[in-house]
Amino acid sequence: MSTIDTNAALPELAPVHNLPKGKLGVSLLILSEIFFFGTLIAVYLFYIGKDLSGPYPQDVLDPPFAAPTWAPMAVSFNSIFLLTSSIWIWLAVKALEQGAMARFTLFWALTIAFGGVFLAGTGFEWYGLIAEDGLWLNTNLFGSCFFTLVGFHAAHVTIGLLLMTIVLVLTLCGYNHQRHAGKVDLLSWYWHFVDGVWIFVFTVVYIIGYYG
């Protein structure tokens, strides 16, 4: 029987390059988020300068490159905090991978604190816009686009902070160990994404929208 011969000559199994599913899953989540924010950003760009009535961005937003920019709680000042938090979380994950729990806890807490400062800054900004400048979603197109885009970003920051706080509590209670570094790393991917989106949001809202 030829069967036996061919069986003997079975080829090697082809190499299968299966990807790690956690990382791929989070990457896909981020991909879908990119398309979500991409839509909001496209709409923001489309409506720049199309308002029928004020207040206009130049009237109420913190000027991105002028003197008051660097005042505490002004948006450029806050942005530094958010972007820096990406460095802290990267250091934190490094620490966890090495099993340095104290260092991890410190950097992790710093990440949360810096993210918190950013969120508080957004809160101050919104308070000023709503209470003092009378700008809200229903005021004009700028208001609709601004609060929707910045609001969705702030919502993502909030979700990130909640998740990180849960991890912090688990760490303090002693449930987080070196072997969880992979999963904690995934959360850091999400946080890097939230930071990365802010660069685009900032550019669109505070630079193009302000000067454009």
Partner: peptide, 16 residues
Amino acid sequence: INLVATILCMRCKGMS
């Protein structure tokens, strides 16, 4: 997301 992850991460031996 689930389906993409399944297809790219869970194929059996030999299934490139």
